[in-house]
Design a protein around this nucleic acid. Structure first.
Lengths: 214, 214
DNA sequence: TGAGTATATGGCAGTGACTGCCAAGTTGGC
DNA sequence: GCCAACTTGGCAGTCACTGCCATATACTCA
């Protein structure tokens, strides 16, 4: 799975990543300007200086171009998987990973700004929200596998799946609120919103622990 | 919003609902037989005895035809909204609604069978899973509004949203497991799986209540 | 009951996403 | 500096989806 990290990053690979990035930027800008539905692949390709045919060799759909993942994001996910594989408790580990990402936003405003732009577009179109969810689902599999492996023989896959799904859902709410507030001129911090949500979920937590024996 | 329930159900409306149902059935059968991607709208339309052009007057996309909602489902959602509007605690009310639906499955095997067929198709394609999530999000709005209204002045919209999203995520896991087990020949009961999941989530619940003050 | 109006249907043409195939260039290893 | 591997762009084709128009069917009210 993650075996080709050691491959020599030649000219080809470097160019590929560059193009990937340029296409993603072109797409993001056009989506913001005129909306996703009103933006054609031809336009994105033209803006990025490639042919439409080539566009589809970089991203399978125009929506995918929006979800180009930056390094920070990926590395935090890898770290999370490693932590869980090393035996960390699932829910706290997930929480820790997100807090780390949000803290990163404070240190690196460029990343924060870009993620916010992307999230704003995502929230504006249901189809993109759907695509974001499939992304979450795909990412979740890796994490679920790690948790199952870590638990060994007495792994409770069902509970693991439910835990990851619930945490993902909560994060999606956080991002949604982040966008909403920022659109109201509120220079909201994602980390703060996350903490607010967690604090508010105490009753749900109580409900879940209480009904366990039911 | 729900003001046109009193409209007289004339021939037109009756036929419309019939067609809606026939198209949904045709789509479901074809999706099962050859997969969603390999099924064209033309084929669904032909199987349902309407023109392709008319198909799009009933459902905006072929995927939507799969999510045709039956009465039971809708009525339980309406009840839930009413309960919440009447002041019921959110998480328990949601749980209660689902348990009621699952109990209904035991009483009405036809409904159970159809939901299982639909869910099986949904689980087979990530894009459908995503569409299911966006559906849930759409449905959630009504419930969220009810909860906000019920809470009055001190409504915590953010927490309400998070609670609903988390519960929805859990239900999706239940459906997923239900399909998985039934495909393994296990005549699983959705209600039982739901109870299993809730029991397993005690640690998550503890985590959420513990970190509230953090 | 017989207009008259609103609505449902189907066909046609058009746009845009996406794919397979082929020809022409580019890069990397030796 | 040459061969093999890979990248690119153009072309043709399929399919989802929409707007427009003519025709048919259901509701309404005089």
């Amino acid at each position: 799975m993650t075996s080709d990290d050691s491959a020599p990053v030649g000219l080809r690979e470097r160019r590929r990543r560059e193009t990937l990035r340029e296409v993603a930027d072109a797409a993001l800008t056009l989506f913001e300007e005129r909306g996703v539905a009103a933006t054609t692949v031809d336009e994105i390709a033209a803006a990025a200086g490639i042919s439409p045919r080539t566009f589809f060799r970089y991203y399978p759909t125009k929506e995918h171009a929006l979800f180009h993942e930056d390094e920070t994001y990926r590395s935090i996910r890898v770290e999370l998987v490693n932590d869980v594989r090393a035996g960390a408790a699932l829910a706290p580990a997930i929480q820790h990973a997100w807090v780390r990402l949000f803290d990163d936003f404070d240190r690196r405003p460029d990343i924060r700004a870009r993620v916010l732009r992307v999230r704003r577009v995502i929230e504006s179109e249901p189809t993109l929200l759907a695509r974001a969810v499939t992304n979450d689902i795909d990412n979740a599999d890796e994490l679920i596998d790690a948790a199952v492996d870590a638990a060994g023989a007495d792994a409770d896959v069902l509970t693991i799946r439910a835990t990851v799904a619930a945490m993902d859902a909560i994060i999606r709410v956080v991002f949604g609120e982040w966008v909403r507030r920022s659109e109201l001129g509120d220079a909201a911090s994602a980390g703060e919103i996350y903490r607010e949500v967690i604090a508010g979920l105490a009753p749900l937590g109580a409900h879940l622990s209480r009904d366990a024996g039911n």
